[in-house]
Amino acid sequence: MSKSATGFLILTLLSGIFHMSTAEDSTVTLPLIACGVFGALFVLALIAGRRIKFDPVLR
């Protein structure tokens, strides 16, 4: 996992935990929106950081 993916994972977890600790009902809060944004960026960082090895010789 790349450094950016790790950072986005940590930010996702922190904002999710912060939302769970502050929101008492099921409302959309800023930490919940940030959790969704950071989660999407985490997935994009995982996709961008993936190294795909291509073998042109099919065996």
Rank of each mutant, 00 (worst) to 15 (best):
G49I: 03
I52Y: 14
L9Y: 08
V43I: 11
K3L: 11
C35S: 15
G36T: 01
F18H: 07
T22C: 14
V37E: 04
I33Q: 01
A48I: 05
S21T: 06
L46E: 11
G36W: 00
L11W: 01
A34Y: 10
F8P: 02
I47D: 08
T6R: 08
L14A: 14
M20W: 08
G16R: 00
G7T: 09
S4K: 03
L58K: 12
P31M: 07
V43F: 09
C35P: 02
K53C: 13
G16S: 14
V37R: 04
M20I: 14
L11V: 08
M1E: 05
G36F: 03
L11P: 08
S15R: 09
I17E: 10
S2R: 06
C35Q: 13
T22R: 11
L9G: 09
R59S: 06
I52R: 13
L41M: 10
I10D: 10
I52P: 09
G39N: 04
L32H: 02
A34Q: 11
H19P: 11
D25A: 12
G36R: 01
M20K: 14
I33N: 03
A45L: 03
T12W: 07
P31L: 05
F8M: 04
F18C: 02
V37N: 01
M1Q: 05
I52W: 13
I10E: 12
I47L: 15
F8Q: 07
L58W: 08
V43S: 12
L14M: 15
V28T: 10
V43G: 10
T29V: 05
L46C: 15
A40S: 13
A40P: 00
S4C: 04
R51L: 13
F8S: 02
F18V: 06
D55V: 07
K53S: 13
K3M: 09
L41H: 01
P31K: 06
G7H: 02
G7R: 03
S26R: 10
A40N: 12
R51F: 07
D55L: 11
L14T: 11
I10G: 14
L32Q: 03
M20F: 14
A23W: 13
F54H: 08
T22K: 15
S26K: 12
F8V: 00
I17A: 15
S26F: 09
K3H: 06
L14W: 09
F38R: 04
P56C: 00
L30A: 06
S4A: 11
S2L: 03
V43H: 05
P56N: 04
T27P: 02
L46A: 13
P56Q: 00
A48R: 02
A45V: 01
I47N: 05
G16F: 03
V43A: 13
V37T: 06
S15P: 12
L46R: 05
V57N: 03
L44W: 09
T27N: 15
S21V: 05
M1F: 04
A45G: 07
A5K: 06
L30Y: 07
E24V: 08
G49T: 03
R51W: 03
I47R: 06
S26L: 14
P56W: 01
V28D: 02
S15G: 10
T29H: 06
L13A: 12
R51V: 14
F42Q: 12
S15W: 04
S2I: 00
F8I: 00
F42A: 15
I10V: 14
